[in-house]
């Protein structure tokens, strides 16, 4: 009995990957590498490093498929959490941070670049945009700076001139608010929806 890989769920793909099915990894790559790459590029603002992160994330899935626990979320959110974590690690290393800041400063000077504005424009799903729109500005800005800017909440607090506790609360409340909005639009399970 053989089922086309294109027809099986993400969780099924990971089972096949755990059995050393390279074609299953290729299918997971086809479904999610675009989002992985986009997030890494967005956080790192560096094409080459973002590609390296993509490579790392999928090799890690190949080498340690057991790290993915379907009970704890979709494959997509797992891969993106891996991507974000690795990107932030790189970003927080001195060299990468300096390069990124120089690049951002140059772009800002050259084209009036607005990182946060670009970030939200790139968010493609309309229902996600709607969910983002329900956020109060203060929550949205805190999430933007933390998630896409790769800042710690302490850095976000400094940037926004807010107490650290307030930033923590806003980020948590904002994520919960978005979750509710996405649920109500039946988009809360992004994992197995997005690749179809």
């Amino acid at each position: 009995m053989s089922i086309a890989l294109q027809e099986i769920s993400d969780s099924g793909l990971v089972v096949a990957i755990a059995r050393y099915r390279e074609d299953a990894l290729a299918e997971a790559y086809r479904r999610h590498a675009g989002a992985v790459f986009a997030l890494a590029r967005r956080v790192l603002a560096d094409l080459t490093t973002a590609e390296e992160v993509v490579q790392e994330v999928f090799l890690r899935l190949w080498n340690q498929p057991d790290k993915f626990d379907p009970d704890r979320g979709s494959l997509r959110s797992y891969l993106l959490a891996q991507t974000h974590g690795r990107s932030v690690d790189l970003l927080r290393s001195d060299t990468s941070r300096r390069r990124r800041e120089e690049r951002e400063a140059r772009r800002t000077a050259e084209a009036g670049y607005d990182l946060e504005h670009e970030v939200w424009d790139l968010t493609v799903a309309d229902k996600v945009k709607e969910a983002v729109a329900v956020l109060p500005v203060a929550e949205r800005r805190a999430i933007e700076l933390a998630y896409f800017g790769g800042h710690t909440y302490r850095e976000v607090a400094t940037l926004l001139g807010e107490p650290e506790g307030t930033v923590k609360s806003r980020i948590r409340a904002g994520l919960q608010r978005m979750r509710s909005a996405l649920k109500s639009s039946e988009l809360s399970d992004t994992g197995d929806v997005a690749w179809n």
Partner: peptide, 20 residues
């Protein structure tokens, strides 16, 4: 929270050529 964060990613992007 991570599912929500994942929803913010750019789902329409394509993988970079050569990485696979």
């Amino acid at each position: 929270h991570r599912e929500v964060a994942a929803s913010l990613a750019h789902v329409g992007s394509t993988a970079p050529p050569g990485v696979w």
